[in-house]
Write a protein that binds this DNA or RNA. Sequence first.
DNA 1: TTCTGTGTTCCCCA
DNA 2: CTGGGGAACACAGA
Length: 269
Amino acid sequence: MPELPEIASRACEMQAALVGKTIHSFEILQPKCLNIPAEDFSTCLAGATLEAASHHGKWIICETTQGYVLINLGMGGEILLRETGNPPKKYRLSIGFQDGTRLFINFWWFGYVHFVATGMLSTHAMTAKLGPDALEITEAEFTRRLRLKNTAVKTFLLDQKNLAGIGNAYIHDILFLARVHPLRKASGLDGEESHRLYTSIRNSLQSSFEKKGAFYEVDLQGKPGGFQEKDILIGYREGKPCPECGSAIQKLRTGSTTSFICPSCQLIS
DNA sequence: TTCTGTGTTCCCCA
DNA sequence: CTGGGGAACACAGA
């Protein structure tokens, strides 16, 4: 499940490794992940040179001389840079470069690779509707948005229109560090609580980003991220003691997602 | 075999 | 308008 730390890491690696490369060919094994017909996708981008790679929330944005390539890995996947003759076992799409290297993009489920013409980024609904990036948003803007919503804090944080980049893996520790129960009303948090939440988001995402993301995702060379299982405080640790107070960590259903909380540190009221 | 888990959109309902 | 809840997508691991 790639979230901001993994996506931002991939974008940095792509910026370092791909800028200046010219696109030579495509292999599109799953046309459904595109937003336009495969032939059009290839025609629009053939001969383009990569100029920059960045991210916004969970989206990777590649700027080329002939438009943008927007990548969303959905619920998990890899972006691998290899020689053309050395493909990974599974991939949905590959982009070949003139120097003989190739970018192989895979995802388990629900990933996207979209083309947007130069100057038309604002017409791409899926990225245009995103809120500020979770590591870019100011505390004032975060608090302002939080106060506007009457939904559960967890729902607020996962809704990419509010702020972009948090998913259902890092959120457990973010809420735990802020001592906020996932089902508290977003608009009901006091100043102290929203400040703790903002700080927790920054600390959690930044520390994983500095380690090149989570151990369950890999970099362009196939190497796992440095954010290890032991770095997770309470997420996915049902029944284990809370690192703060020793209470048994609980797993609970919150809407359609699962949450992990410390029942003593994160009270509902 | 059957269940669950991840992201995102979309659609219905109160 | 808001927010909750579900379906859809057609995979991988237990």
